[in-house]
Simulated assay, not measured.
Amino acid sequence: MQVDLSHRIETGMQTFPGDPAVAVDEHATHEEDGFHVDAVACGSHTGTHVDAPSHVIPGGSDLDAFPVERFAFDAVRVDCRDLGARDPIPESRVPDADAGLAAFWTGWDAHWNTDRYLDHPYLSPEAAAACRRRGFDVAVDALNPDPTPSPNARDDEPTGFQAHHALLGDDLLILENLTNLGRVGERFELRAYPLALASDGAPVRAVGVDRET
């Protein structure tokens, strides 16, 4: 079974605060031009996407430094749905598994395109460090593995994108804004091939292939 784990790219969709707005507009129409073309304007971290090290690491690798097979992941799903708004995911949740990627299932995709989506659970610095030690790439069904700025931010939250630096600084990849993780099993293959951009990140069409069916 293959499951689409991607949010649709569309005008006005949610982005990280301050990122470029997304617009999908008609550029040519059948009636006027005899064919249809859309003009798409968006940032490199639009929707369901992958972060390259250069996103936060000066001189870090862009996406085109990684071979295409690097974007097919042996994934383990980690159930974190019991955590609430702006709760840290503790180190104890990082699995001791023979896998290449840890997909943290918070259920926060249910709040996509709402203000509440900004207040997702996040990886504690200790959890991010454990993922780095175990060589895990990381995926989240939320806006960010770090806390996202919002009016509800707490004074004791980590600052400085610590999870991003821990992972991307070791050439591990981060995938953000997944959805539908409840439709795959605990072990699955995640295929998330980015657009062919020499960039710090790019949208992906993320697909989960369940290994339990």
Rank of each mutant, 00 (worst) to 15 (best):
D4A: 12
R8E: 14
Q14S: 00
Q14C: 02
P17N: 04
G18Q: 02
P20K: 02
V24P: 00
E31L: 14
G34A: 01
V37R: 09
D38A: 14
A41E: 13
S44A: 15
H45D: 06
G47Q: 00
T48N: 05
V50H: 12
D51M: 15
P53N: 09
S54Y: 09
V56Q: 05
I57K: 08
A65P: 08
F66G: 07
P67L: 12
A72N: 09
A72S: 14
F73M: 06
V76M: 04
V78E: 05
R81M: 13
P88R: 02
I89Q: 06
V94M: 00
L101G: 05
A103R: 02
D109V: 00
A110V: 08
H111P: 05
N113C: 03
Y117Q: 06
L118P: 02
H120Q: 14
L123E: 08
A130V: 00
R132F: 07
R134L: 10
G135I: 08
L143K: 07
N144A: 14
P147C: 07
S150W: 02
A153Y: 01
P158V: 04
Q162D: 11
L167A: 04
L167R: 05
L168C: 01
L173N: 12
L173H: 11
E176V: 13
L178T: 11
L181M: 10
L181A: 11
F188T: 09
E189P: 00
L190A: 07
Y193R: 13
A196Y: 04
A198E: 10
D200M: 02
A206Y: 06
V207I: 15
